[in-house]
Design a protein around this nucleic acid. Structure first.
Lengths: 197, 197
DNA sequence: TTAAAAAAATAAGATAGCTTAAGTATTTAC
DNA sequence: GTAAATACTTAAGCTATCTTATTTTTTTAA
């Protein structure tokens, strides 16, 4: 079986169960792609009309502000979905960049195909509805943290939740996700080490 | 026709069109409720198993941290949907409070009825899928702002986007939404007034 | 394998935003 | 209609976080 197909079908089957025919129809709409390290899926200003499922690798979704600083909005590794929902929902050019930080293999589906599949397989629309609910819960939690926690607390939360990423992305990127400068994150880490060790 | 039914049907018909029978089935699951000013829909620790559509009034969704401070996560006025997606998706007690800040009239639908309706009327699942996409886009924008903007910029953004709320909720609540103290917001407003006027 | 580039650490000085406290204005509840 | 409660403003001093600059470490690419 083609690369990653089993992974994506398993991912879906955790939430809804498709018949063999439905699986085949779904799979027929997938496009397999590979990106090199540092290569971009999406650049600010483009229109985003796809949804990607990561089979292998790691990508970052970031926003670059008017002073040239990047802010990490989201990351995704194998078995995760990634795309720019804002751009594709509102049909506006994206303000985000999506970049591979490792060699990355994805399965991609276009917005048009996805809309067709939602008609053909309502269970698939359910799957994405539930995925979106989880994403809303996750984003809301991040807002709660940004409103109510210190940088140190947010770093500890990041570690608890995404510790597996700590050696896969740089401190610079973690700092950007937390909303602090890399210098300040470095200081936070030093303090935590001297206290706990 | 009962209070607000037309409003909710119009709200849905902006995204999907239901037949008369589907509308009737949907409407049959709605419960009409009124809340007094300051009354709570939902308290931290409860399980949230409903979705609310505001017909009239205004509610605030806030998180209270361990030091007793409140942080405004979301607000909703007439013609908006509100609920705790995190709690109802993951079946965990909510960490949020939902409180009416004015006399508020709502139409409520239970999670069970909603799930039944998604089976009976797939278009309704589409409606909520699209609503969730918009919510994700909105939350993501808020994260971008919190990562990349100063308090003054965030306040101007709030005014541009939610100016209609400026006289409906207090400065305290706006400050809490922006993630600053009310004292600091007061200072921001003074500076803006002295510069622009 | 090594030179160049990028990332991370350290530290000193600067600032956005917080705390505390007091005073004034507005709203609420009887 | 009035007293009490709540919201808002102002201001001084404080702290978390940023900026800038330098050094050290790690990664990248030829």
């Amino acid at each position: 079986m083609q690369q990653g197909i089993q992974l994506i079908l398993d991912n879906i089957s955790k939430i809804v169960s498709l018949t063999k025919e439905e699986q085949d129809l779904f799979v027929s709409k997938l496009q397999y792609l590979e990106y090199k390290k540092k290569e971009f899926f999406l650049h600010e200003g483009q229109f985003s009309n796809e949804l990607n499922f990561i089979i292998e690798g790691c990508v970052l979704v970031f926003y670059t502000d008017h002073t040239g600083f990047s802010h990490l909005i989201q990351f995704a590794i194998e078995d995760w979905w990634v795309g720019d929902i804002a751009s594709s929902t509102h049909n506006i050019p994206t303000q985000l960049n999506i970049q591979a930080v490792e060699k990355t293999k994805v399965l991609r589906i276009s917005k048009e195909d996805l809309e067709y599949l939602f008609e053909a397989i309502p269970k698939l629309e359910r799957f994405f509805r539930i995925l979106l609910q989880k994403r809303v819960a996750n984003l809301q939690q991040r807002i709660i943290s940004s409103l109510s926690k210190t940088a140190t607390e947010r770093f500890l939360e990041f570690r608890a939740q995404y510790g597996f990423l700590e050696n896969r992305i740089t401190q610079l990127q973690i700092a950007s996700f937390l909303g602090v400068t890399p210098e300040f994150l470095s200081m936070i880490r030093r303090k935590l080490n001297s206290t706990n060790k």
